[in-house]
Write a protein that binds this DNA or RNA. Structure first.
Lengths: 222, 222
DNA sequence: ACCTGAACACCGTTCAAGT
DNA sequence: ACCTGAACACCGTTCAAGT
């Protein structure tokens, strides 16, 4: 996010905890127990300090979460060899972002709290925009195309992660089954037709299929 | 969600508050002050009762939010005349869902807490799946196509609503501007090229463009 | 059957003071 | 400059008791 300031002559009380230490501990809590367990108080005790000491190193909890996403992106997003063909390049770059996010279920809370503006993710954004331009889109339309891909990708992550959490909680999962079991075939014939296959069908990972359709549609006739 | 049980001979203490009253009051709080202000305690005092009384009518806060989304869908989703041409029908049905959600910024928290399984929304889902089948997709592929549209739609709402909230909070909005202002044109030429137009470009409402691209891609060559 | 009061086990954040 | 203790103003939910 921001580089540490150039080293100055130390003045006053020497720091006991650092931003890096805070983020590192937060990362451990979040990967081990989920983002729901990350509280400022918990984090403070884990770094051996008090809640208020944290506020000397991060502005508030939201900034901490953004720093955490940044840290995660820097740590895991490796730039792969991308195909030369522009459409395939767009698909590959989007898939790389998607895979990184999918491997990281706590991301959802942060996604809704921040745009994907981690500096290390920008290279992938560049590849997508550039690939779309290479397909014949104007720079403006390429940015809009990237946004459409980002909406699709973020939505897939949010919906799938939430569905997975729900599945862990039996009682609520059955509500959807009830609704589908009670469908009136006269009113909603298509849904009634696929009602018993709905759960497995929607559990399938079809991210790439949809992505390809979207990229095809965005670049059609150019 | 669930129909009220058939009226029985009343036994024991007569109820002072009803599920309808709770949902109605919750709806008022949420539309007037946002979903962040809806707490069980606040809601209890507004209906003139105590927090615990609520738990006799709803299981917990999450159920309340789902009931609220259901109530909103039933109240606002009117079935429009849809075009006969199948692709246009898919676009129109998805746009109707999108408009209803976009008019309702508190929805984001509930979207991530629930699939769009409100009974009143199912008619729109039916139209989308049926439209895709009419375009030549198999029922299974039509369901996957609906899911792709749903990911795109939910993602657009989540990302745009969050961005709008951020814009209200000046300090954080400028972080993205900083990142874009400091882009290295040698490393990320496309992004550097559009850097100064990024904010207005991504603020444009291009939901329909992306949706049409996605639907075109899903139905291409069929 | 329905509601109440008190309590449990927490939150994020601010303030004033200490070293 | 950095950290601490105590407090503020809250949360959702459970338990045991009352009517």
């Amino acid at each position: 996010m921001s580089q540490p300031p150039a080293p100055r002559r130390p003045r006053g009380r020497p720091p006991r905890i650092s931003r890096e230490e805070i983020i590192g501990t937060a990362r451990r809590i979040v990967t081990e127990e989920g983002v729901g367990r990350l509280t400022m108080r918990r984090l403070a005790t884990e770094v051996g300090s008090t809640p208020m000491a944290l506020y000397h190193h991060v502005r508030d909890k939201e900034e901490l979460l953004v720093l955490l996403l940044d840290d995660y992106a820097t740590r895991t997003l490796r730039r792969p060899e991308l195909p030369g063909e522009p459409r395939e390049r767009v698909v590959a770059a989007a898939t790389a972002i998607h895979e990184a996010l999918a491997a990281c279920p706590w991301i959802v809370e942060v996604l809704t709290a921040d745009d994907l503006m981690s500096t290390s993710a920008l290279w992938f954004v560049e590849q997508i925009v550039d690939g779309l331009v290479a397909c014949g889109l104007s720079p403006d339309r390429a940015v809009h195309g990237y946004r459409a891909i980002w909406y699709y990708t973020a939505g897939e992550i949010v919906v799938r992660t939430t569905a997975a959490r729900r599945r862990a909680d039996d009682d609520r999962a059955t509500y959807r089954e009830q609704v589908f079991a009670g469908l009136d075939p006269a009113e909603l014939p298509r849904l009634a037709q696929v009602a018993d296959r709905w759960a497995p069908l929607t559990a399938e990972d079809t991210y790439q299929d949809g992505l390809r359709a979207l990229v095809d549609g965005l670049t059609a006739g150019r």
